[in-house]
Design a protein around this nucleic acid. Structure first.
Lengths: 207, 207
DNA sequence: AATTTAAATGACTAATAGTCATTTTATATA
DNA sequence: TATATAAAATGACTATTAGTCATTTAAATT
């Protein structure tokens, strides 16, 4: 009796179709927000059907953001090479992050949006930490570095996770809106990122 | 013939009344957004009148954010004491920032919102840098520190302004939503801020 | 007092999120 | 196969709210 299973598969497939259409709509070039009607048209379903798969627009956007975190986590995980010190892995992680933001800027924007505002629907608990999977990679790297003595250990790994992630997220937000700064400051953003690295790598050295 | 002047004064006064009402509405305890109708009711004017003073809702919110930047700039300016080194002033600036975010969290949130999205109305140029006045204090502090040799000078002051501001803004955003983290990480946010300081102060030291 | 100008009004439109009674399609049963 | 039941999908509808504009009210000028 595989009918139930097939139905479940079909349901998941449809859900993915909606997600794909929503991504196209919400990430369209023009800065416009995109409407649920747009998504419905794109995926060739009625609007009502969307609400059978996602409680509301925010949940739909949140699901896209979760997908983005999945991609980011995969990027991050590539740095976990045993031959590299914790400090080196951390540096690699920074590179991966920059690459990710450059490759998926819209996903990153969306992740940031939910980092700032939270999903705000009753169902997705407010304490859901969207970035958790990616941050757990960062945490592993830090622990490794503290163990091999390449990262200062007068701060707990949890503290450094939050500090480094917050700093980096803030920096990446600035990078995304760099147009706003270049009229006011004489900076090259590659150099800004490098400068950030230098400050941080020096700042988290032991001793 | 002071009629024109009086009229102008009255106009500014009315503008301020609207701003004050809008602040109350948009900063009300419940997370709700607040509507233009709410603001109109609060200030005892018709909705149409609001639009004689502000082009749209976004402009009204932006004006509140500008007011917040004014407050922040005043906080920042208190650190410019000649007897303190640049490095010391920078540390003081951090303290002032934390104090500001604790005292005016809603203003800070709003400032962050426009840092991220921009005002998005045709009239307020996209390149308006909301934080400019406050950042110019930070810039002065950094220049001072580079001159007295207490801050590294292998990065330009403009680069460090953007780096430090971005990092700090990211950290403060995390602080604002700390509830989201405490379920997942064992951290005390006072210690996180202190940790951030320690990393940064070490990271920007010369040599 | 009559006329012109400025300020304010609020009923209206437009856009869009979300709902729900009804219809269509698929599955189970006789 | 014909009928009944359940699941999925529909789209017209409601609700909310930003923004508009023809009209009214108030103030200043002649």
């Amino acid at each position: 009796m595989g009918i139930t299973e097939r139905k479940e598969r079909e349901k998941q497939k449809r859900r993915k179709e909606i997600l794909a259409a929503a991504e196209k709509i919400f990430f369209a070039k023009n800065g416009d927000t995109g409407t649920m009607d747009d998504v419905a048209e794109k995926v060739e379903l009625s609007k009502g059907t969307l609400y059978l798969y996602f409680r509301n627009k925010t949940d739909l956007l949140y699901a896209i953001a979760e997908k983005g975190v999945g991609l980011l986590t995969k990027c991050f995980s590539t740095v976990l090479k045993p031959e590299r010190t914790g400090r080196e892995q951390l540096s690699d992680l920074g590179d991966e992050f920059v690459r990710f933001v450059e490759e998926y800027p819209r996903h990153f924007e969306l992740i940031m949006r939910f980092e700032v505002t939270g999903p705000r629907s009753k169902e997705v608990r407010e304490t859901n930490l969207l970035m958790k999977p990616a941050l757990s990679v960062l945490r592993d790297v830090l622990i490794r570095g503290q163990q091999d003595g390449t990262i200062r250990n007068d701060l707990s790994e949890d503290e450094i996770v939050i500090i480094l992630w917050s700093q980096m997220a803030g920096l990446m937000q600035s990078i995304l809106r760099k147009e706003r700064y270049i009229d006011h400051y004489r900076v090259n953003f590659k150099r800004v990122i490098k400068g950030h690295y230098r400050i941080i790598m020096k700042g988290i050295a032991p001793g």
